[in-house]
């Protein structure tokens, strides 16, 4: 868990999300719908993004989980967190940790050559266009409607990485 080994005894019904929020008190991962419909609970498991409300905690024994708390902290922000602040890529803040975790993992997916619905040529390396970013981020709802700014934040970080 964010680089530390954590021992937990949980109900078999406990989702990964509730294990984080209620048992480990890592409340950065948000519960917006609890049904895999909004993306606010997005975390990374072994480097891949996942809706933590749609998976049970007991399925992740031995896995490496990275949450928003593991990416950076106030005073020590991850570049994506800093870009969200700079571009005002959030408003109420409730979808924000999920958006940031999803963005970080999504850029890795593009780097790894994974295509999306917006990829015209499935055999070529996907390009980092706004259309690709929007398509790949569409599992994370922001009801405040910060999308335009979120894409700007991600584009800046992606540009810096490239």
């Amino acid at each position: 868990m964010n680089g530390e080994v954590r021992d937990l005894a949980v109900d078999t019904r406990t989702t990964l999300l509730d294990a984080l929020r209620e048992h480990l008190q890592l409340t950065g991962s948000k519960k917006g719908c609890d049904h895999g419909q909004c993306g606010a609970c997005t975390v990374m498991v072994d480097g891949r993004r996942i809706y933590s409300c749609l998976t049970l905690a007991v399925m992740h024994e031995g896995d490496e989980v990275t949450t928003i708390e593991g990416l950076g902290q106030p005073g020590n922000l991850h570049p994506m967190q800093a870009a969200f602040v700079k571009h005002d890529g959030y408003q109420c803040g409730y979808c924000t940790p999920g958006q940031i975790c999803a963005s970080v993992a999504m850029l890795e997916e593009i780097k790894a050559g994974m295509p999306s619905h917006a990829t015209a040529d499935l055999t070529a390396a996907p390009r980092l266009t706004p259309e690709e970013i929007r398509e790949r981020m569409s599992g994370n709802i922001c009801r405040c409607g910060a999308y335009s700014n979120i894409v700007d934040a991600i584009t800046e970080v992606a540009g810096r990485q490239a």
Binding site: K30, D88, G93, P97
Partner: peptide, 21 residues
């Protein structure tokens, strides 16, 4: 200016109602 609560919100440290352990 950037929001002063930005670092809290982007790091998941802003406490919402259900999270006040």
């Amino acid at each position: 200016v950037d929001r002063i609560d930005g670092p809290l919100k982007t790091t998941g440290m802003a406490p919402y109602a259900y999270e006040r352990h």
